[in-house]
Simulated scan of single mutants.
Amino acid sequence: MTNVKTNSIKAWLLAARPKTLTGAAIPVMLGCALAFIYGHFQLTPALLCFLFAFLMQIDANFINDLFDFLKGSDREDRLGPERACAQGWISAKAMKAGIACTTLLAGITGLCLLYYGGLEMIPVGIACMIFAFLYTAGPYPLAYHGWGDLLVLVFFGFVPVGCTYYVMAHDWNMSVTMASLACGLIIDTLLMINNFRDREQDAISGKKTIVVRLGTKAGLILYFLLGLAACWCCFYFLEIGKIYAVLLPQLYLIPHILTTQHMARIYRGKALNGILGETSRNMLIFGLLLTLGLIL
Rank of each mutant, 00 (worst) to 15 (best):
A127V: 09
A127I: 09
I130M: 15
A132E: 01
A132C: 10
F133K: 06
L134N: 08
Y135K: 09
Y135T: 04
A137K: 05
P141K: 06
A143P: 00
Y144R: 03
Y144N: 04
Y144A: 09
W147G: 02
W147R: 02
G148I: 05
V152W: 07
V152R: 04
L153N: 07
G157W: 02
V159P: 02
P160W: 04
P160H: 12
V161Y: 06
V161T: 12
Y165I: 07
Y165P: 03
Y166G: 02
V167N: 05
V167I: 14
M168I: 11
A169K: 03
A169T: 10
N173Y: 12
T177E: 14
M178S: 03
A179T: 00
S180A: 15
A182P: 02
G184I: 04
L185E: 05
L185M: 14
I186T: 10
I186G: 03
L191R: 00
L191T: 03
F196D: 02
R197W: 09
R197H: 10
D198K: 00
D202T: 09
D202C: 13
I204M: 09
S205F: 09
S205K: 15
K207C: 10
K207I: 13
K207R: 15
K207W: 08
K208G: 08
K208N: 14
K208E: 15
T209Q: 03
I210G: 08
I210A: 14
L214E: 10
T216M: 04
T216H: 04
K217C: 08
I221Q: 03
Y223N: 04
L225H: 08
G227F: 01
A229N: 04
F237A: 03
F237W: 03
L238V: 14
L238S: 12
E239T: 07
E239Y: 06
I240K: 03
I243P: 08
Y244W: 15
Y244S: 08
A245F: 06
V246F: 11
V246W: 08
L247H: 05
L247Q: 04
Y252E: 03
L253D: 06
I254C: 09
I254A: 11
P255M: 10
T259D: 06
T259V: 10
T260Q: 10
T260A: 14
M263V: 14
A264M: 05
I266D: 01
I266S: 04
A271K: 11
A271R: 12
